[in-house]
Design a protein around this nucleic acid. Sequence first.
DNA 1: TAAGTGACCTATA
DNA 2: CTATAGGCCACTT
Length: 111
Amino acid sequence: MSRRQNRAAARRDVRMDEELHERVRDVIASIPPGKVSTYGDIAAAAGAPSPRLVGRILAEDGQDVPWHRVLRANGTPAPHLVHRQLELLRTEGVLAEGQRVDLRRYRWQAQ
DNA sequence: TAAGTGACCTATA
DNA sequence: CTATAGGCCACTT
């Protein structure tokens, strides 16, 4: 077993999996309508080890949370969701220029 | 053990 | 704007 896999296994064994999963969904659920956040911000706020985990969690269990309010760091949605996501955001008053949302204006942060 | 694959990020050219 | 490059973590082959 590699060093990396060792660290990962150790972290998982500390019941991190479910708690993290839950924290990530809580953070996403706390994003108010009309605002958006990024995978990186969510990861930081929820204490996730990396933004990839956030995307992974949403992929497997994103139906109960406002997943459409989560964008990539450059303000664009994940490629396979673009149209659906931007349309949902539009109904909340979040407008996009092309495929990009202006994060300076719509980004939400805990502060 | 190694390599591939994501709802990712930052830096650089 | 696009394209690489390197880093990241969990999971699958």
